[in-house]
């Protein structure tokens, strides 16, 4: 059975009229790097919450169907059992920072403290995680004195340090400059190489194309289409449904109409575009 298995999942938040997820089915294998795309309100964050157990255990509401991770069923687990296996970095890092810690180092150790990890082991794990995400220099700063991009790295690190089997990231680079974005993608990529499974919500199409093993496009709480990044990110379905595509894809689509793009397949990345425009 797949490492993550979502079956007929329908979920409605309390006090809302329409379900945020509607009869969703999704299987994810171990070590995959899944990128979730979709318009605002398509269910991306709710899917993240469902994978992380916050839906329904924290948010309540009405749920049917099942979410299984590594053989365990969400409906039969409690949230504190669930978080051992699944880590979620929030869209807004400010909402994730505990407010109970004075330094970045302590903030990152917070989860390990709660899990009862021995002190020495805790220290080395925190140091390792900070090194991995390039924030060792922030160790003694207050989490609240940081820029948005730095806070996002702290939020990410405080999840990575827990060594979850499934890592769920909701727009982890939204406030980062391009170098920060590149670094985060390459860290995540390396983690998937060593067997971690990653689900990432992301709007930055060019990076998705480079790193994700599969792209899942959501619309109205259900899967619209899924597949290889180079197929999904160039499909007409995306344009028809108001998704953003890379400038390389849109310029080639326009060029094709004018006979300036000769290949069948549209590019997603810089090199695909350069190759295509060169061979004419």
């Amino acid at each position: 059975m797949a490492f993550v298995n979502i079956q007929n999942l329908t979920y409605k938040y309390p006090l809302t009229k329409t379900p945020a997820l509607q009869n969703m089915n999704l299987q994810i294998e171990k070590g995959e790097f899944i990128s979730i795309i979709g318009a605002n309100g398509s269910g991306k964050s709710t899917l993240c919450y469902a994978l992380a157990g916050f839906v329904p255990h924290f948010f309540k509401g009405e749920i049917s169907g099942e979410i299984e991770v590594d053989g365990a069923a969400s409906s039969k687990s409690t949230l504190d059992e669930w978080v051992v296996n699944v880590g979620l970095a929030f869209q807004n890092p400010f909402n994730q920072i505990s407010g109970a810690k004075y330094t970045v180092f302590e903030e990152i150790a917070f989860g390990l403290e709660n899990a009862g990890v021995p002190r020495e082991q805790m220290k080395s794990r925190v140091e390792e995680a900070m090194q991995l995400t390039g924030i060792s220099n922030l160790a003694d700063r207050s989490p609240y004195s940081l820029s948005g991009g730095q806070q996002q790295r702290v939020a990410l690190t405080s999840i990575l340090v827990m060594q979850p089997k499934l890592l769920v990231l909701d727009e982890p680079t939204s406030q980062m400059d391009p170098i920060g974005t590149r670094e985060v993608f390459s860290v995540i990529h390396n983690l998937t190489q060593s067997g971690m499974t990653v689900v990432m919500v992301e709007h930055k199409v060019e990076w998705i194309a480079h790193f994700a093993t599969r792209v899942i496009a959501l619309k109205d709480g259900a899967v619209l289409t899924e597949g290889k990044p180079s197929d999904v990110l160039t499909s007409d379905l995306l344009i028809e449904n108001g998704f953003g595509v890379s400038r390389y894809t849109s310029v080639a689509r326009e060029a094709k109409k004018q006979g300036l793009w000769k290949k069948d397949k549209l590019p997603v990345t810089l090199f695909e575009a350069a190759e295509g425009f060169n061979t004419k």
């Binding site: 391009p178 060019e206 890379s246 390389y248 310029v251 060029a255 300036l260 810089l270 575009a273």
Partner: peptide
């Protein structure tokens, strides 16, 4: 730490003489 726009980078890689910054210019 700023990358030029996607189409500017594409223009450079294709050795276009002018700097292009948007789709219309590129085409």
């Amino acid at each position: 730490y700023v990358d030029p726009p996607q189409l500017t980078r594409l223009g450079k890689l294709l050795n276009l003489k002018e700097t292009v910054i948007n789709q219309e210019e590129f085409l």
